[in-house]
Design a protein around this nucleic acid. Structure first.
Length: 521
RNA sequence: UGCGGGGUAGAGCAGCCUGGUAGCUCGCAAGGCUCAUAACCUUGAGGUCGCAGGUUCAAAUCCUGCCCCCGCACCCA
């Protein structure tokens, strides 16, 4: 038995303090698209997502909603999993940080690090806002002019802060400053995209301070086993999910409750994160792994942010885009397509309805949808729906030439350059449209029917390949195209044989529009 | 002050890491075709690649300086 190459990919664990929006959808879809591609390549893919449910913030919003944190988290976590289902995301595991499997392991890691000295007890000093239950640093909450009074930086609060001391456990982050820098240098693919690496490197070079990893004022969290009045800091807890979800057994943990699959899965191949949580994933998380003695993920990829109609998304503006609103209008696949065609993965971009509409009409309707329609209509009109079979494969010219793009597309996928993958695919779609124009089958049909048969066979084979390439982005559309072209089982075609096998004298019917023009409203 | 991102045709953007005819989409102009969702194809107009130096046979791309825009308060992928 050959061992398949594994590919372990993660999304962040989404914080359950608010309902999911386009940003969450973007990260998760990116992971799903990459996961689907790697599955098609035959890899053993494991896609992990989930929710982060602890911390003062959750206590707060739950209290505001008049329910227990647990019940609140249940509600929001369900919204996330429903959205993933709606968006056709195929994840292999959904972990919630409140689950027993996670909590036990986080506690075990904490105790282990206490024993090695990487976690020690100290005193946390900071400016505390009683109302917000938050500590602020000197720089975050500078004193007002000519006074010593510091106020809460939260504009809705602005209450006076008090200098407070709290017993706290600390993680020796400072110890890992040099090892981290060495790791970045030795592994240029660790911090992705490359242009963001400088930011992290500079941050670490400026010096790392030990991190307070427990709280006594917070109740909703993972208690420290040996000192239960302390609750583990939410980030220190949450980051560990990537490895706890594999069933990893930390040193010193008692009898395992489930199969430890970490040997097969860990290290993760790629963590997808938004740029605002990049530091946690590029600095603290690797340092934690070093402390535990576990391998580091192969890469941490920070993507950019969406603005909406030119404006930053924010709660105060209330302009979050609800993915369901967009999919109601355009369907799931168009939404998936748009997000990754519109902006280069890793950059920032702007989301707007007029841009979706433009791409829907031009790229999807005119380029791709119309292509399928004209091809199937011609097969019907000129050949009565009957395509020639495998015996004609030697006569194909377009198909082998389209297949030459496979390497470049693969490279784009492998480099997580999702926009480039789509660009390359659309170049091929353009070639098909052009090919029809040049060969003029409507003329050919009058003098050379055999030529038309081969031409259309060539076009159908080529479009089949293209349908396979787009399937990670638009799984439903891909299936529709393939079944319209007589394919019985959806598959990605990587070699000419795969393309041609199973395409043998099928009857092809006129296809309806894939992306119908919208009625003017 | 500091950190980061950005300034490329009318608009929106890629290219910059790994220098070598400036590219894509939309829009605009003219033409072609009719299999097709008024779709498809061709051609064209339109750019001192923010500014100024430097390195080089050669710079949008590397280096230095400067100018302008955005983010670094809560929320937040």
């Amino acid at each position: 038995m050959s061992v398949k190459k594994k590919f372990y990919i993660t999304t962040p664990l989404y914080y359950v303090n608010a309902a999911p929006h386009i940003g969450h959808a973007y990260t998760t879809l990116a992971a799903d698209i990459l996961a689907r591609y790697h599955r098609l390549k035959g890899r053993d893919v494991h896609l992990l997502t989930g929710t982060d449910e602890h911390g003062a913030k959750i206590e707060e919003v739950a209290a505001a909603a008049g329910i227990e944190p647990r019940a609140y988290a249940d509600k929001i976590a369900a919204q996330f999993s429903e959205l993933w289902k709606h968006l056709d995301v195929r994840y292999d595991d959904f972990i919630r940080t409140t689950e027993e499997r996670h909590v036990k392991r986080v506690q075990a890691v904490f105790e282990h690090l206490l024993s090695t000295g990487d976690i020690y007890k100290g005193v946390y000093k900071g400016y505390y806002c009683v109302s917000c239950e938050t500590y602020w640093t000197e720089t975050e909450a500078p004193p007002e002019e000519k006074t010593e009074i510091r106020r809460c930086p939260n504009v809705d609060c602005r209450k006076k802060l008090t200098l407070t001391e709290e017993e706290s456990y600390f993680f020796k982050l400072s110890k890992y400053e040099k090892p981290l820098l060495e790791h970045y240098e030795k592994n240029p693919d660790f911090l992705l995209p490359r242009k963001r690496a400088t930011e992290i490197t500079n941050f670490v070079k400026d010096g790392l301070r030990d991190l307070a990893v427990s709280r006594t004022k917070v109740k909703w969290g993972v208690p420290v086993k040996s000192d239960p009045k302390h609750v583990i800091y939410v980030w220190f807890d949450a980051l560990q999910n990537y490895i706890t979800a594999t069933g990893y057994r930390p040193p010193g943990m008692e009898a395992p409750d489930e199969e430890d699959k970490s040997a097969a899965l860990w290290p993760a191949d790629i963590h997808f994160v938004g740029k605002e949580i990049y530091r946690f994933h590029a600095v603290i998380w690797p340092a934690m792994l070093m402390a535990i003695g576990a391998e580091l993920p192969k890469s941490v990829y920070a993507h950019g942010w969406w603005t909406v109609e030119g404006q930053k998304m924010s709660k105060s503006k209330g302009n979050f885009v609800d993915p369901k609103e967009i999919t109601r209008e355009y369907g799931v696949d168009v939404f998936r397509y748009f997000l990754f065609r519109e902006m280069p993965f890793g950059n920032d971009g702007d989301f707007s309805l007029s841009k979706i509409e433009d791409r829907y009409k031009a790229e999807l309707g005119n380029d791709l949808g119309n292509l399928l329609m004209r091809i199937t209509h011609m097969v019907d009109k000129y050949l009565g729906g009957a395509l020639p079979g495998k015996s004609h494969r030697d006569k194909l010219t377009l198909t082998p030439s389209v297949l030459k793009a496979a390497d470049a597309i693969d490279e784009a996928y492998e480099a997580v350059n999702l926009q480039e993958a789509l660009n390359l695919i659309w170049v091929q779609i353009g070639r098909l449209n052009l090919h029809i124009e040049e060969k003029k089958p409507w003329k050919m049909a009058k003098e050379d029917l055999e030529g038309v048969r081969i031409l259309l066979f060539d076009l159908v084979s080529s479009l089949r390949i293209i349908a396979g390439w787009i399937s990670p982005f638009m799984p439903t559309v891909s299936t529709k195209i393939q079944s319209a072209l007589g394919v019985r089982r959806t598959q990605m075609a990587l070699t000419p044989n795969e393309v041609l096998n199973g395409l043998d004298g099928e009857k092809i019917k006129k296809a309806p529009p894939l992306f119908p023009r919208k009625e003017k409203s």
